[in-house]
Design a protein around this nucleic acid. Structure first.
Lengths: 196, 196
DNA sequence: AATAAAACCGACTGTTGGTCGGTAAATACC
DNA sequence: GGTATTTACCGACCAACAGTCGGTTTTATT
């Protein structure tokens, strides 16, 4: 077996695990590279051997958190039958998950702050946002909503969802807030539905 | 005349002007307190005498840029007659203005990054977002859209608009992108309009 | 066994946000 | 009008931290 590769993978994972915990609990700014190295049980040099900068570490963590989140959402959305309904359910799960704790800290707070909005959006779109355009296109195809350019509409809806997530994250009664926004979101999406 | 007050105002303004220029052109991270002090023609101590931290300076700058922007938007929106139409026009101006240069850097990039999303949203809402809930409430009152909780819907729309602004900012052909998003936004808002 | 390459170490450096003791200007008080 | 106090301003200094670099150990290649 490629011993070097194993070693590399083990160290990298240790760093990423430690970093994920620290970034999630303390935030990006308050987390130091020395802290990450120490928590991972390696020297700072090792961290810099695997990651070029602190931002690179964060980006890797961000990516992994996103991946996990998407997996959760997928299973939730798959339960619904109507495309529009799945959108609502999926997004609802999205901001329920990001509303609290480490996930929210990494995805919603530091994410855009550290990576810059464009970069953040690109990664976010790769994981999660990519689903929205597809869902919308499908909804048009199925005649559920009026035909129009997909991309702009998807962006607007993604923005709305993200905003809802942030708003929820900032409130004490998350459950109630989540329900409120879910209702508003449903009303927005349903408004798009063609009636005859 | 209160000499001390004048002195204070002059120094503060010099700092703010310098900071606004630097933040706008170089971004928050690349701008140093020494740089601001130097550009303002004062010592670093003076800056810290008037502002507790670097973030405090940024917040003041952010506030002033927002205020200017809102003034612009207001005059644009006032030209429209229908409340929904005014919303569309106003938001269109919003992301046309934030799409390029220093304003976008301060409002859309560093704003959320530096202040944190909640803080950013709060200030943004005070200047700009506060108009949306009012407009929506008015629209309901006028029977243009269905009655429902105002706040959540306003949030969603604000998120959509902000997202559109960011998306525009990231594209080369701003004019075309702006038009696209304006159209999508109109379609979204118009979908809410009650038909009978 | 010898050589090369990759992983890892930790002392060191440069930059920068923020502090602090001190000076000058304005105001309050008698 | 002179003294005390408060406010504006100065700039050397400090601590923290991201990132560097020469050196050491472990694995791969020949």
């Amino acid at each position: 077996m490629a011993k070097q590769a194993v070693r590399r993978a083990a160290t990298t994972e240790a760093i990423l695990t430690a970093a994920r915990r620290l970034f999630g609990t303390q935030g990006f700014a308050a987390t130091t590279m020395d802290g990450i190295a120490h928590a991972a049980g390696v020297a700072k040099g090792a961290v810099y051997h695997h990651f070029k900068t602190k931002e690179a570490v964060f980006e890797a963590v961000f990516d992994s958190v996103s991946r996990d989140l998407v997996a959760e959402i997928d299973s939730t959305a798959r339960a619904e039958k109507d495309v529009l309904a799945a959108m609502v359910a999926g997004t609802q799960h999205y901001f329920a998950a990001t509303a609290k704790g480490p996930t929210g800290q990494i995805i919603l707070r530091d994410g855009p702050a550290v990576l810059g909005w464009e970069r953040w959006r690109k990664i976010d779109a790769r994981h999660f946002g990519g689903k929205l355009p597809r869902a919308i296109a499908a909804a048009m195809e199925a005649g559920l909503i009026a035909r129009q350019p997909v991309e702009p509409l998807a962006r607007l809806l993604l923005g709305a969802v993200t905003e809802a997530a942030v708003a929820c994250a900032g409130r004490a009664d998350i459950a109630r807030a989540g329900a409120e926004y879910a209702r508003a979101l449903r009303s927005l999406v349903e408004a798009l539905r063609l009636r005859e």
